[in-house]
Design a protein around this nucleic acid. Structure first.
Lengths: 341, 341
DNA sequence: TGGGTTTATTAAATCGATTTAAAAGATAGG
DNA sequence: CCTATCTTTTAAATCGATTTAATAAACCCA
């Protein structure tokens, strides 16, 4: 390392001005003489000067960075196929605004409280996009209500909090209603873990659709599983073994739906002949299964983009528009529900 | 905001010492009197002091942060299901070492050069984990050979560069050989884009396996596609339309393999009866298809962890062990190849 | 030409921590 | 009691940029 790094000081020295002038010149301040500015710019360009953002951040008291936090209790969210879409939506907007993205996870549930506290205070990020966790996770509450700029990717129980959420209830309702319209009335649902708000809402949507069509809901109709494909297989087996008759399944995500189809088919049950299946998420695979999977499309990319935009607006103290945004979901009709597409 | 943020100065003032002593005390320096240290610690704890890492970074000239860079030409890599596993492996190690992870993407190919230059110089990250891009991407070369601490996730053409790579050639070889051992000799390969080193190596592995078993290779045996499921379907159709006979397919990833199976089945071809299929990656879905997919397991989580560990060692000027690491892949036998598992 | 503006430039403070070198205080030995 | 040594503490510099307030220079008009 002959020399380390070219700093503003170097530029100033070589251009024969003070660092103040150099700084002002590079920021295009009108106070500095055009000729001087040109000279400074020329030197900066020649030396390939790139400002040290750490120094800049310290002075500006902002990091131009936002953190995407995954609470420990959602660690498995990482395996969600659409996590990547969310990320794409977020980065797209951040790049446009010259922001950086810090990905944050806690080492373990025990360290979690401390870890979040640090994120909130060490000033490495200016704001947070928060992925929902178990409703039992106390840390979430701490972050959301800390006054720190936060966008929460789900429903929150009071409306001061900025949220961007999928249409969970409505999506589940649409899916269930679609099954009913196909003439299925003996419906069951494969739910995700019920300590997640998301799961609760989807179950509510399912129930409401039944109710609106005069179908009596009974507790056995909901099987609680963990979102994985393997769990979908198990759910199918358990339902079959239970002896209850059913002719339609709404699964809270495509992975479980695909697992369930696998389980049913292995038991010799035809889809959609014997049982119709509707999933949720519209992952790439949903178009590849046999039969292809009818599902609810959740525009995760858009959600990421909206969340990022709101957070940046929040940081810039600009108008963020509506505080709560619900991004509509859409029913994608394929083969597994027995409808004409 | 009654008051903004508690700083070291506050701690020092309240504990009745200088900031120097406070800093020394909190870092456990032996020079400060035990009693003083206790007092300072007590105040820090009471006020929930968390050091501003921006200030610390500026002074220390390091950010305790590494960047994971996705070149623009690999943007679609984001959709790789195992991207998430890579991320998990990386974050696991980073968290252990109190490092942060910055996710970096360039807005467009045009801005790419400038964007990387900035990452290299703005000191926001101390080192880089670099995902491979098209071999035509000139920016990659710039980063790798910049002297900046870099771990490259692929093969590089000279051995000064620290790399962690999957056993691409070997994996493809194993997959192909397995097909041959099942009695298939009319083999084809569905490859990823051939301007990727990864693709080239997998094709080489395929060719070598043919050669070692006295099967003549011909150019039509390799179909170049873009890694998506949809592309797999197309590949199958093109192969069928070409009129060439084949009884075995090696696909360079599971997504294309799954698409190809779909395409074949739609054309009434049975798997593995008429055509055996082997994929690559072992994504969750591979265990759910009908038939289940034989594939090559690529331990992405481990690769991420190793890469992160090496990079941190590099930053700490510790011994990093071997500069080039090849993580072995493993053949996972399921139904699609017609073998007894 | 001199007083009043305008225009350009810069010295110095600042952000929040760390670290060095120097000062102050305590202790011991003669 | 005085010097030498050891232990603690602190003032001040530093990291790299930005910004304010002050100064310097140029310009204008009577």
């Amino acid at each position: 390392m002959t020399k380390d790094h070219v700093t503003l000081k170097d530029i100033a020295r070589i251009a024969g001005v003070s660092t103040a002038t150099a700084s002002l010149a590079l920021s295009g301040d009108s106070r500095v003489n055009v000729k001087t500015r040109r000279a400074v710019e020329e030197v900066a360009k020649r030396l390939k000067y790139v400002p040290n953002e750490i120094g800049r951040s310290l002075r500006a008291k902002k990091a131009e960075t936002i953190a995407l936090i995954f609470p420990n209790t959602t660690h498995f969210a990482f395996s969600h196929p659409y996590f990547v879409q969310l990320l794409e939506g977020i980065t797209e907007v951040l790049v446009e605004n010259s922001f950086h993205l810090l990905l944050s996870t806690a080492p373990s549930e025990a360290d979690e409280a401390a870890a979040y506290d640090k994120i909130l205070r060490n000033r490495r990020a200016d704001g947070i996009i928060l992925w929902p966790a178990s409703i039992r996770d106390r840390n979430i509450q701490r972050i959301v209500e800390s006054g720190y700029p936060v966008v929460y990717l789900g429903k929150w129980h009071h409306d001061e909090v900025v949220t961007v959420e999928r249409e969970e209830f409505g999506g589940a309702y649409k899916a269930t209603e679609h099954l009913i319209k196909q003439g299925r009335r003996k419906l069951v649902m494969i739910s995700g873990p019920l300590d997640y708000q998301v799961s609760i809402e989807r179950v509510e949507g399912f129930k409401r659709a039944l109710q609106d069509h005069q179908i009596l809901f009974e507790p056995w109709m909901v099987v609680e599983k963990d979102f994985s494909m393997e769990a979908g297989v198990e759910a199918a087996n358990e339902l079959l073994e239970s002896g209850h008759r059913f002719d339609g399944i709404f699964a809270a995500n495509d992975r479980m739906a695909i697992g369930a189809m696998k389980g049913l088919q292995q038991a010799g049950i035809t889809i959609p002949g014997d049982v119709a299946v509707v999933g949720c998420d519209n992952i790439e695979m949903a178009a590849m299964t046999s039969p292809t999977l009818t599902t609810i499309d959740q525009p995760m990319r858009e959600i990421g983009a909206i969340a990022a935009r709101k957070l940046i607006a929040l940081l810039n103290r600009e108008d963020i528009g509506e505080k709560q945004t619900v991004v509509p979901s859409q029913l994608i009709i394929r083969e597994s529900c027995g409808a004409e597409a």
